[in-house]
Design a protein around this nucleic acid. Structure first.
Lengths: 343, 343
DNA sequence: GAGCGTCATGCGAACGATCGCCTAAGCTTG
DNA sequence: CAAGCTTAGGCGATCGTTCGCATGACGCTC
């Protein structure tokens, strides 16, 4: 169904080699022959087979991109950034949703090896992703982690300063009077969870507030997880006055639970989280968040992986730590405080 | 760097053919030989080269997915649906952002042909995408359009009933008293724009309200477009009392412009649009929208393209028309009306 | 006019896995 | 024990492109 170089060659009365030279703009072809070949290419609607080319050159022109959930705006914006950089460099992007599932992640990674992707950008499920990633390390496969590091795996990495971000968030809550601040967070085998909790604890300590284990609720970093965790928090006595959610999706789930409980944010319960939801912020700047430079996560990761592809596997691994900002809006109750000091 | 069947064969003391038989679970290999081969595979960390396999079998195992903007939640949710279905069927997804740019779209389509993707799901830029897509049609390339049709191109299609949806939206605005309803919409060479405008006009006609060309503002379907269009609308005299935005992103841009103008939705200006922003709706159910079954767009499109791949290019093209619902929330002013009949 | 460089082009192999076909050994069977 | 069948496994070709090398024609130079 698809014409090959040989078909074109036959039609143009030349050899396959000459056709190859023409389509690759190579020198050493007379103008006359070139024209004949070009006509044959057009007539047969010939498009060189990228798979065969890939086999010859050992270059697939493909990058893998594995994220837990593409529908999370944090990741969809990140993906856009990465895709744009990759495309400009002539690379295609294979998108994978790991759904936070280690087995699925493993399958995707193996697929990258099998199909000879030239590099991989991955937001790993957690520390246990290490087993999935060592085959890549062994092959010196260009690999860039985003958002989360993997304990015991040394490789390129783009992340934000989670400790500092969490400290800002918690300090802010403390500064406006909150003392019982619950945390909705993932298990400790996720690096960002560890770091954010560390920042939270540091802020509490600095303020001389004692932390309590019962305020730390572990869950999955999605809406369902946030919802379940919040339900649990709402039953505590005394009830916390503020909640620090590990990311935007958990915050949304928490918000839902709070509303279902007939309570109002921030009057009855303050709510802050990591990761802005940009589209949402445009419509109503409500959530107080630590905003990470989302798109830059993607563009930087793509640049790193492309450099690694171009420069070979040698060279020390690079860690890019991005700054994030505290955006104080309504959900923390700061504005409420300002108007009703009797809180 | 990567072992081949021949390397494994040498180490196991067999031929490449036998290795191939083992890794494909084929019969005709003695248990003893099989074990030897399996050990060699493990020792060499051999992973069969998918590119070479693809060349032999003419099956790349890849689907293309082209959308205008992956960071638009409508598309990111759709992509998740499509990716999930594709993966379960053993396919990988090549994600492309056309950015609404015809030239870029063309490049992506050609890339699909070159790399022998087995099928393509695309939300086309507009009617002018036809030139980009005819090469696919000529090759009987499995192709499914989503969201928008392309005038003059007959192929599989998944879309919502835009006419009915727009009619619901406009009728609702009319029913609560609005008479000057502006429309922010794309040029007429986008099928959904045509259809939504048609629904709007039908609703006006049914209500005996005359439509005015000056109320129709053409723009691009993104935030910047919505913002610019809204600025224009806000200068009209008499000022419209409601705005119908062609999709969620334009609505966000419009919202921004309205707020910058010191006005409040819905008190000073009602605002409705197509496509819910799910995450946003959880946080604060504010926008009145026509909600399309977003994820289903993706899953159905993937199913159609997979069927087309499995069943061959024959068979009539199928058009799936999904229903959408009107979600009346606050931004239309319905609740406002209820409490202040003097509007 | 012999030697040499340049240019356009072709030949055969290679990338890595697999498919069709073949062979050789072992076993059954009458 | 010879014919026939089953089983394990190898050989060579193939997918479509490109690479290294060879070749033949032409023109230039001393």
């Amino acid at each position: 169904m698809n014409a090959t170089v040989r078909d074109v060659a036959r039609r143009a009365g030349v050899s396959a080699m000459t056709v190859s030279r023409v389509i690759n703009g190579g020198a050493g072809v007379s103008p006359e022959t070139r024209r004949r070949v070009e006509r044959a290419v057009t007539e047969l609607d010939f498009v060189p087979n990228g798979v065969a080319r890939g086999l010859m050159s050992s270059k697939s022109g493909t990058l893998g991109l594995i994220v837990p959930d593409i529908s999370n705006p944090f990741f969809s914006i990140l993906v856009r950034g990465a895709e744009t950089v990759a495309r400009r460099a002539g690379y295609r992007v294979l998108l994978c949703n790991s759904e936070g599932d280690l087995a699925l992640e493993k399958q995707y990674v193996q697929d990258m090896i099998a199909h000879r992707a030239e590099g991989l950008i991955i937001a790993p499920v957690g520390d246990r992703s290490k087993a999935n990633l060592v085959p890549l390390e062994r092959r010196k496969f260009p690999l860039v982690l985003i958002d989360r590091s993997v304990s015991g795996l040394e490789c390129d990495l783009v992340q934000a300063d989670s400790v500092a971000g969490a400290k800002m968030l918690a300090s802010h809550l403390l500064s406006i009077g909150h003392r019982r601040i619950a945390v909705i967070i993932e298990p400790d085998n996720v690096s960002t969870a560890r770091e954010r909790l560390q920042g939270y604890n540091a802020a509490l300590k600095a303020a001389g507030v004692k932390s309590s284990p019962s305020l730390i609720v572990r869950t999955t970093a999605d809406r369902a997880g946030g919802h379940a965790a919040m339900q649990q928090i709402l039953q505590q006595d005394p009830r916390p006055t503020a909640v620090f959610a590990v990311n935007n999706m958990t915050a949304l789930g928490a918000m839902q639970a709070i509303r279902e409980h007939g309570l109002v944010v921030p009057k009855d319960m303050a709510l802050v989280c990591f990761d802005d939801v940009e589209h949402l912020a445009v419509l109503s700047p409500f959530l107080t968040v630590v905003n990470q430079p989302t798109e830059m996560f993607g563009t930087l990761a793509a640049q790193l992986v492309l450099e690694r592809i171009a420069g070979g596997p040698a060279g020390p691994s690079r860690h890019v730590i991005l700054n994030s900002d505290l955006l104080v809006r309504e959900s923390c109750g700061a504005k409420l405080m300002a108007t009703s000091p009797a809180f």
